[in-house]
Write a protein that binds this DNA or RNA. Structure first.
Length: 423
RNA sequence: GGAGAGGUGGCCGAGAGGCUGAAGGCAACCGCCUGCUAAGCGGUUGUAGGGGUAAUACUCUACCGAGGGUUCGAAUCCCUCCCUCUCCGCCA
């Protein structure tokens, strides 16, 4: 959510932001609604001031045992009028608030303007994306051969887009989660274990709602949503709070399964582990002072990249251009790993600064000093990392000519000392 | 799921239709006082929104878990919902 005052005063900047994100939003209509609402506020408050004054007068007259029926009769009318105006006002506020939730965050000035993924500049690359295998297999072929990936079972249990990992596959997944969490703990993040369903307010707080409702799994009876990322529960841990300035930055990490309906995605890039409806991920979230958030974004990105360096996985960092930036983000880096089988760069992490966009929605504030005015914090989050694509990359990258898969060194202790996955 | 008890400012806690944004206490801050510390005395201290201003000042409105209702007037009465605690049931 943006500051309404900013929208009023700096309309052009907001307009440019919306356009550069290629979002369709009627800003002029919004401003008209806003002006109309403020007129109603003024009318309502004027009437209420009148009522309050009369109320005192009535109270005084009654104490002096005088007749107040004139005022009472007049105020009955005023009260009715207040009700009418307030009904109008309530509708106006509701419409405005609903519209407000659909205004995207403004890209940071450093964000390159562009239309889509093809305009995302590469920021850096690490390692040599190559493999010793002449004809690399796809990860789903490797996985099925090793008996660690069972796509058919996933489809049987639930349906397309759900997978079952077996044996060492399940172990690999568990090992990765543990390794990731251990790394982030060392990097200074507090580990949390969080709920995997979240209520509507939380989903709105982090910006998934209202826009992405169709992409969520929804428990209708309780109006709860399966979390699409641990970002939702972690960020909302501090919903409605005022933090001490000295406590910032607050850094948290948590594992969670992530549930995404991916409504409307089909065909390309959906085979194997590339795009599934349920996947595991370790997430990092930071709550920072506004002045520090861009520095913190860089270290967050570094923290995520470190995981890949530890896993010896070649990767590159790209910066999302304005047109590819998500609804809530002001700036975002994606980290991609090269998978020689599918011959694609796979997004395994997204590190974003939301500035005060989420904080405003979720009402997360801090005081610079004791007794100071509460200000909105900046929130950031990044995957560290999403599992399925990391698994896909490990399988494809570390496959050997003999059909085995080498386990990255750092992961070996987490795999019961196993150095290779084999059939 | 059933039965009870609750939810009031940074915290504790009163208030049970009318000068109550809310007594009292604690805490914090600012003075004064005391040789230092402690004590004591006086004062200040919520959030959000509107108007206003260069910014203050000033001013209005709302807020006693949330939303409705009754009333000229609601923290106080009525309804619905949420949350916390205790007991029972159910599941692990």
């Amino acid at each position: 959510m943006l500051d309404r005052k900013l929208i009023r005063k700096d309309t052009d900047r907001v307009r440019r932001g919306i356009e550069s994100k290629r979002v369709d939003f009627d800003l002029d209509g919004f401003l008209a609604m806003d002006a109309a609402m403020r007129n109603l506020i003024q009318e309502s408050e004027k009437l209420k001031a009148e009522k309050n004054e009369a109320s005192l007068e009535v109270s005084r007259l009654k104490k002096e045992k005088q007749d107040a029926s004139d005022i009472l009769a007049r105020m009955k009318k005023t009260s009715e009028r207040i009700k009418e105006v307030d009904v109008e006002l309530k509708t106006a506020v509701e419409r405005l608030e609903a519209a407000e939730l659909s205004i995207p965050n403004i890209p940071h000035e450093s964000v390159p303007v562009g239309k889509g993924p093809q305009d995302n500049p590469v920021v850096s690359t690490w390692g040599d994306p190559g493999t010793g295998v002449a004809k690399p297999l796809f990860h789903w072929e490797i996985g099925e051969k090793l008996g660690i990936l069972d796509m058919a079972a996933g489809a049987a249990v639930t349906g397309r887009g759900f997978v079952v990992l077996r044996g060492d596959g399940a172990l690999l997944s568990r090992a990765l989660v543990n390794l990731f969490l251990d790394i982030h703990r060392r990097q200074g993040y507090e580990e949390l274990a969080v709920p995997y369903v979240a209520n509507r307010d939380s989903m709105t707080g982090t910006g998934q709602l209202p826009k992405m409702e169709d992409d969520m799994y929804h428990c209708v009876k309780d109006d709860l949503f399966l979390v699409p990322t641990a970002e939702v529960p972690i960020t909302n841990v501090y919903k409605d709070s005022v933090l001490e300035g000295e406590a910032l930055p607050i850094k948290c990490t948590a594992y969670s399964p992530c549930f995404r309906r991916e409504a409307g995605s089909y065909g390309q890039d959906t085979r194997g582990l590339i795009r599934v409806h349920q996947f595991d991920k370790v997430e990092m979230v930071k709550f920072t002072r506004p002045d520090d958030s861009y520095g913190e974004l860089e270290t967050l990105l570094g923290d995520a990249c470190e995981v890949l360096r530890i896993l010896e996985i070649p990767h590159r960092v790209i910066e999302l251009c304005s047109g590819d930036l998500s609804f809530s983000a002001a700036k975002c880096y994606d980290i991609e790993t090269w998978s020689p089988g599918v011959e694609k760069w796979l997004e395994v992490s997204s590190c974003s600064n939301f500035e005060d966009f989420q904080a405003r929605r979720a009402r997360i504030r801090f005081r610079r000093e004791k007794g100071g005015k509460p200000e909105f914090v900046h929130t950031l989050n990044g995957s560290g990392l999403a599992l399925p694509r990391v698994i896909a990359t490990i399988l494809e990258l570390n496959q050997t000519p003999t059909g085995k898969v080498r386990v990255p060194k750092a992961l070996v202790p987490y795999m019961g000392g196993r150095e290779y996955l084999e059939a």
